[in-house]
């Protein structure tokens, strides 16, 4: 699970001019990760097995881990390193050492990060992790099943066209969307999970370099302001839009 700044919030660049100002940022579970958890739970319901959610430390992450437990994950693990300080390559090294040192990868392990997050300038963590662990990788996955000990995955291409692959396990799959919308869990159940279960913490050493790419400058795009903004109250906006559509011969 990766925490991501809520995209609805305004993003600002910090004083160093090279990073996001995180002081007022609200973090939530990333969209793709909601789906990877859902897909994992669906697989467990279909084929059995255990679901473990793993995350690095980040604001609000405990809530997300307890929510995952309430939804049906079997265990939750928090690694003691700060997610917001590590780029995707360093993060992949951290997870690789987690799998080598702490969690055992077996012939039926599926590692399911989200496909991609909105800040991965260094590349997709899942793809890099697969390289480090020498495992097969498929990204942009929107369907996943196990048949005869192998994974059958659906990958999105373009124009609604998808491809089906058969993959030997263990493997890493970047999940784009689960077969069903992520399930909802009432707050009461999350509270119950907080009482009845524990998040396991795992200590790992800091990766050598937090970021591989050196960012010279971060900034907001110049508002090209191509859109001509229609001012006025709702009725004025509606009238002007209808006028534009008529001028263009659309109506």
């Amino acid at each position: 699970i990766k925490m991501a700044p809520d995209p609805v919030e305004e993003l600002n660049v910090a004083n160093d001019g090279k990073s996001l100002d995180s002081e007022f940022l609200r973090f939530k579970c990333g969209d793709p990760e909601e789906h990877s958890l859902e897909q994992a739970l669906l697989l467990k319901e279909r084929c059995g097995g255990r679901v473990t959610v793993v995350a690095l430390d980040a604001p609000e992450v405990d809530d997300v881990l307890y929510t995952a437990l309430a939804k049906g994950a079997d265990s939750a693990v928090k690694i003691n390193l700060d997610q917001t300080k590590l780029g995707s390559i360093a993060t992949a090294y951290v997870f690789a050492s987690y799998f080598v040192e702490k969690a055992r990868i077996t012939e039926d392990t599926l590692i399911m990060p989200g496909t991609q997050s909105i800040d991965d300038i260094e590349g997709e963590m899942g793809a890099i992790l697969a390289e480090l662990l020498e495992l097969p990788y498929v990204g942009v996955v929107s369907g996943l099943n196990i048949e005869g000990g192998k994974a059958i995955v659906i990958k999105e291409f373009r124009s609604g066209i998808r491809g089906e692959y058969e993959v030997q396990l263990p493997a890493v799959f970047g999940i784009q969307s689960a077969e069903k919308p992520p399930r909802y869990v009432p707050v009461a159940k999350v509270r119950a999970a907080m009482k009845s279960s524990k998040i396991e913490t795992v200590e790992l050493s800091e990766p050598q370099k937090a970021n591989i790419l050196e960012i010279e400058r971060m900034y907001k795009p110049e508002v090209a302001g191509r859109a001509q903004i229609i001012e006025g109250d709702i009725n004025q906006v509606a009238a002007r839009l209808a006028e534009i559509f008529a001028e263009r011969g659309i109506i």
């Binding site: 700044p5 995209p7 993003l11 996001l20 909105i118 790419l213 050196e214 960012i215 795009p221």
Partner: peptide, 13 residues
Amino acid sequence: SAVYGGKILSDVA
């Protein structure tokens, strides 16, 4: 690069 869904730009040398 356009990051955060295009809301932020980032320069790398």
